[in-house]
Design a protein around this nucleic acid. Sequence first.
DNA 1: CGTACCTTTGACGGCTGTCAAAGGAAGTGG
DNA 2: CCACTTCCTTTGACAGCCGTCAAAGGTACG
Lengths: 253, 253
Amino acid sequence: MGTVNGLGASMGRYIELESSERRLLEGLERHPYRAVRGERLWTSGDPVQDLFILQDGWACTFRDTRDGERQIIELLLPGDILGLREFTLPRHVSEARLITSGIVCGFPHHEIVDLVMASPPLAIALFAAISRQEALLTERMMVTLHRSARIQVCHFVLETFLRLRKVRGVAPESMPFPISQQLLGQILGQSSVHINRILMALERDGVMKKHRDYVAIPDTQRLYDEAEFEDGYLSDRMDGLLERLEALRGDSR
Amino acid sequence: MGTVNGLGASMGRYIELESSERRLLEGLERHPYRAVRGERLWTSGDPVQDLFILQDGWACTFRDTRDGERQIIELLLPGDILGLREFTLPRHVSEARLITSGIVCGFPHHEIVDLVMASPPLAIALFAAISRQEALLTERMMVTLHRSARIQVCHFVLETFLRLRKVRGVAPESMPFPISQQLLGQILGQSSVHINRILMALERDGVMKKHRDYVAIPDTQRLYDEAEFEDGYLSDRMDGLLERLEALRGDSR
DNA sequence: CGTACCTTTGACGGCTGTCAAAGGAAGTGG
DNA sequence: CCACTTCCTTTGACAGCCGTCAAAGGTACG
């Protein structure tokens, strides 16, 4: 609960961090800040200024269609970076909000430039982070376009469980899940009414039971099967590039 | 037709290239290679080894579902880089193929590391390139989840027209479009039968006429309206970071 | 204790997928 | 240059998943 997840942990998924790099990253987290549920970090049309490290809490980015529907683009969990997708754009094309109260650290987007200059390995780790966020998006697209709503719901819950487990201990019988049925609909591109019917059915069938702020998963394997889940896309490994990065470090000494 | 589009043009969209950077990029294009229609550049499960610069021709990346449906993830046009999405992964999770015959240059993925080390501005330009590819994906998701198939088709054709126009001259009355109805279905996540009905209707209504290898667009503005198109996401501008990049260049001298 | 948000349920309709089959157009080999 | 094969396009019938509209009951929070 109280665990705070910073950039060090996040980038450390991909490469071994040297102490100097750790210090660089900590420099970006100078200003932690309590954000309340629903708080807006940026909105569509804003000039891009800050990126945010989500140290605690859940957040999302989204866009609204011209007739008022909302599509969630990313779900951000503790340790994730908000704004990586857009920091090279002149203006934001999405909006970002906290789903729960949490702790965020903002830093100016141009500090990414400094980071890239100071440490090529960190630059590569940033590429890795972007790739992972994009992989989530791609998988979401595969599932929403080719699978029934029931499978979509199962898939999303399981994916979130696995992501969360990387960051902190999670028990399947009571996994934190502060996502309303409406929000779930906005994530999967479906109506909240239909989401409700599916959650009812999943509960009836003993696959999962969603409560207000958490989900109970009696049988994880069962959920894998229901979701037709293949978890390769969640891997943090970066095998092929590591030797080159090590060589690079050797050179710079 | 015969114009060849390399990395210089591609990265030059985002930053002003210095001559040393131009030379670095040309170094990646040592081995241009004629690839035939349908040729496979990599497939799912392959260890990640090379990225490819598409100098001429059209290509795509895609994934297949377990029951044999195919989803196109990206459509690549001349000047685009194939493999940016995945170069930090240990293995490919997608497959890549040429849609038409063309010219590609492969280079080992670890040369990206060298590039990032040699020129932080180029590293930032790579971030920009990834962001733009991701923006295409996001826009596709918005449209496929929230708009009718008719709008989806119009949107995709117009998007492709605008992308192509950045690279070479295109006349709306005969825009190259070597995309079969089946492929169009695989891009938008719909059945080719339904795509056909929509193309028939669009022709009847005078919005566009798709021929085997090209599309005729009698009235571009009409297509904008039909597509409910908002083109902000196609911008190459990178305003906010440029000063910092200039400062960086000043330092390194 | 009231208000706002979240969940639940029913009725109805339409967009889009599936199945099936036939007709064109382009490319290939003899 | 012709025959053949393969890919691409077109059309009809039918079904079902899921959206929309509407309304009521729960639950948390101030």
